[in-house]
Computed example of a mutant assay.
Amino acid sequence: MRPSIFFNVHLVSDSTGETLNAVMRAAAAQFENVTPLEHNYYLVRSERQLERVMREIEAAPGVVWFTISDEDLRLKLEQFCRARHIPTLAVLDPSIHMLSRHLGVTASDRVAGQHALNAEYFERIEAINFALAHDDGQNLQGLLAADVILLGVSRTSKTPTCVYLANRGVKAGNIPLVPGMRMPSVLDEIDPKTGPMVIGLKIGVERLVQIRSQRLMALNENSITDYTDEEAVRAEVTEASRLFQRRKWAVIDVSRRSVEETAAAILNKLNQRHDQE
């Protein structure tokens, strides 16, 4: 097997850097045995801030990806890197130029335009608050106001998936499936046509044992319990699958899915339901 390749990647943004992080990680994932060493510089909006960034780039050369709206700062960064043969990429430029040509409109240089305090922004904040308030079976009656309710055994990424959905404006809550505990009665009150969509998250036994074992190791817990015992886990997973089947709930297998992929599958199901309505 080829040894891992490590390289410095400098992410320079005049905003929160979310776009840069997402694009860089998606690109790096296409290369096997490659590990980016991230250097993040956010809210870079002055020459003084940029000078500090350039000193750090010079100290650890690699590649530079940036989203900077100010033309003077962009030019200064590009000239600095060009003189030192450091590759640069203005990540948003191709998308902005394509839209500009298509729309026949010149783009503005507004910093962090995607974070404008519009109705969509406040919907996302409300959805995030909802996810936090209805995590892990909290405030069960309030789940009737959700867009989607996720059910699954422990370590099926229910919480991070709900938070990710909330960032897309979706009100999501989750209920853990615990062996020996009855399902909350609120699930019987849900109208399958107009109420929240209930989705079961299933996972393979071997994968779940692996995830739970790693979790215990991270907590320095070495005792063997039903939590990681393969037969006990198999019974737990089987019972969850039977429950999903009895209730005729939609099911998503998260065994080999990232949180983003699981959320995308949920959004697809919500969109399909919306289209049918």
Score class of each variant (00 low, 15 high):
45 R>G: 07
110 R>A: 04
143 L>Q: 01
275 D>E: 13
228 T>A: 03
18 E>A: 11
99 L>E: 02
7 F>H: 04
60 A>W: 13
169 G>R: 08
77 L>D: 11
109 D>R: 15
135 D>C: 12
203 I>V: 07
65 W>E: 07
214 Q>W: 08
70 D>L: 03
22 A>C: 10
203 I>K: 02
97 H>D: 03
164 Y>T: 10
179 P>K: 06
217 M>V: 14
95 S>D: 12
25 R>A: 07
248 K>W: 10
16 T>F: 13
198 V>K: 04
189 E>L: 09
221 E>P: 00
137 G>Q: 06
58 E>G: 10
52 R>H: 05
97 H>K: 14
164 Y>C: 04
106 T>F: 08
144 L>N: 09
64 V>K: 01
196 P>T: 11
217 M>H: 15
116 A>V: 13
15 S>T: 15
167 N>A: 00
106 T>A: 10
41 Y>F: 14
260 E>F: 07
36 P>F: 02
158 K>R: 15
203 I>F: 13
14 D>W: 07
110 R>Y: 12
68 I>W: 03
235 A>P: 02
246 R>I: 03
219 L>T: 03
8 N>S: 13
221 E>H: 13
181 M>L: 14
149 I>K: 05
60 A>Q: 07
207 R>M: 01
154 S>V: 15
242 R>P: 00
133 A>P: 08
181 M>T: 10
54 M>V: 06
214 Q>A: 07
4 S>V: 14
142 G>L: 08
157 S>D: 01
19 T>L: 03
14 D>L: 05
29 A>W: 08
67 T>W: 07
241 S>R: 02
17 G>A: 12
3 P>D: 01
158 K>A: 03
229 D>W: 04
190 I>T: 02
94 P>F: 11
237 V>L: 05
97 H>L: 14
74 R>C: 08
215 R>V: 05
209 V>G: 02
167 N>K: 02
272 Q>C: 04
148 V>S: 05
130 F>G: 09
132 L>I: 15
141 Q>R: 09
116 A>D: 14
69 S>Q: 11
78 E>G: 05
243 L>G: 04
93 D>A: 11
245 Q>D: 11
201 L>P: 08
125 I>F: 07
151 L>V: 12
174 N>Y: 12
234 R>A: 02
265 A>G: 00
213 S>V: 00
96 I>Y: 12
173 G>C: 04
241 S>N: 01
3 P>I: 09
115 H>L: 13
35 T>G: 00
206 E>Q: 03
186 V>E: 02
227 Y>A: 04
5 I>N: 06
244 F>L: 03
115 H>N: 01
252 I>R: 06
